Amino acid sequence: MLRSSHALLASLAVALPTAASAATLQSFKGEYTVSVHGFSVAKASFSSSYEGDTYSIEGSVSSAGLATIFDDTRGTVSSKGKISGKQLQPQAFRADYKSGEKASMIDIQFANGAVTATKVVPAPKKRNPKNWIPLGASHLASVLDPMAATVIHADSLDKVCGRTVKLYDGEMRANLTLTYDSKGSTSVRGYKGDTVTCRLGFEPVAGYRKNRKSLDYLRKRSRIMVTFAPVGQTGVYAPIHATVGTKIGTLTVSAERFEATE
Results as ranks from 00 to 15, higher is better:
residue 3 R to T: 13
residue 4 S to N: 12
residue 5 S to E: 07
residue 6 H to W: 12
residue 9 L to I: 06
residue 12 L to N: 08
residue 17 P to C: 07
residue 22 A to W: 04
residue 27 S to C: 10
residue 28 F to A: 15
residue 29 K to T: 06
residue 29 K to C: 05
residue 37 H to N: 15
residue 37 H to E: 14
residue 38 G to A: 02
residue 40 S to A: 07
residue 44 A to T: 13
residue 47 S to I: 14
residue 47 S to V: 15
residue 51 E to W: 06
residue 53 D to L: 11
residue 54 T to L: 03
residue 55 Y to H: 08
residue 61 V to P: 03
residue 61 V to Y: 08
residue 63 S to V: 06
residue 64 A to Y: 07
residue 64 A to F: 02
residue 65 G to C: 04
residue 65 G to I: 09
residue 66 L to K: 03
residue 67 A to V: 09
residue 68 T to W: 00
residue 69 I to A: 15
residue 71 D to T: 14
residue 71 D to Q: 13
residue 74 R to Y: 07
residue 75 G to Y: 05
residue 78 S to R: 09
residue 78 S to K: 13
residue 79 S to I: 14
residue 80 K to C: 01
residue 80 K to T: 12
residue 81 G to M: 00
residue 82 K to L: 08
residue 83 I to H: 00
residue 85 G to V: 13
residue 85 G to E: 14
residue 87 Q to H: 00
residue 90 P to V: 14
residue 91 Q to L: 12
residue 93 F to K: 01
residue 94 R to I: 14
residue 95 A to G: 07
residue 96 D to Y: 01
residue 98 K to R: 13
residue 102 K to E: 15
residue 103 A to R: 14
residue 103 A to C: 11
residue 103 A to F: 12
residue 105 M to L: 10
residue 105 M to N: 13
residue 106 I to V: 15
residue 107 D to I: 05
residue 107 D to R: 10
residue 108 I to F: 13
residue 110 F to R: 11
residue 111 A to C: 04
residue 112 N to K: 15
residue 115 V to Q: 03
residue 116 T to W: 02
residue 116 T to R: 05
residue 118 T to V: 15
residue 119 K to M: 07
residue 122 P to K: 07
residue 123 A to E: 09
residue 125 K to F: 04
residue 125 K to R: 08
residue 125 K to A: 12
residue 126 K to W: 01
residue 126 K to T: 12
residue 127 R to D: 04
residue 128 N to R: 12
residue 128 N to P: 10
residue 138 S to Y: 01
residue 139 H to W: 03
residue 139 H to I: 11
residue 140 L to W: 13
residue 141 A to H: 06
residue 142 S to E: 15
residue 146 P to I: 00
residue 148 A to K: 07
residue 154 A to K: 10
residue 156 S to I: 00
residue 159 K to V: 00
residue 163 R to P: 02
residue 164 T to P: 01
residue 169 D to H: 01
residue 170 G to S: 01
residue 173 R to A: 07
residue 174 A to H: 09
residue 174 A to F: 03
residue 175 N to G: 11
residue 176 L to W: 04
residue 176 L to M: 06
residue 177 T to E: 13
residue 183 K to T: 12
residue 185 S to C: 08
residue 186 T to W: 06
residue 188 V to W: 11
residue 193 G to H: 04
residue 196 V to R: 07
residue 197 T to E: 10
residue 198 C to R: 06
residue 199 R to I: 14
residue 201 G to T: 01
residue 206 A to E: 00
residue 211 N to C: 04
residue 212 R to K: 14
residue 213 K to T: 15
residue 214 S to V: 11
residue 217 Y to D: 00
residue 219 R to D: 10
residue 219 R to G: 03
residue 220 K to Y: 09
residue 221 R to Q: 13
residue 222 S to T: 03
residue 222 S to V: 06
residue 222 S to N: 05
residue 222 S to P: 10
residue 223 R to D: 08
residue 223 R to I: 05
residue 224 I to H: 02
residue 225 M to P: 04
residue 225 M to G: 04
residue 225 M to E: 13
residue 227 T to A: 12
residue 229 A to T: 01
residue 230 P to I: 02
residue 231 V to L: 11
residue 232 G to L: 05
residue 235 G to T: 00
residue 238 A to P: 02
residue 239 P to N: 02
residue 242 A to T: 01
residue 246 T to L: 05
residue 249 G to W: 02
residue 252 T to V: 15
residue 255 A to Q: 04
residue 255 A to G: 11
residue 258 F to D: 09
residue 258 F to V: 05
residue 260 A to D: 03
residue 261 T to H: 03
residue 262 E to R: 12
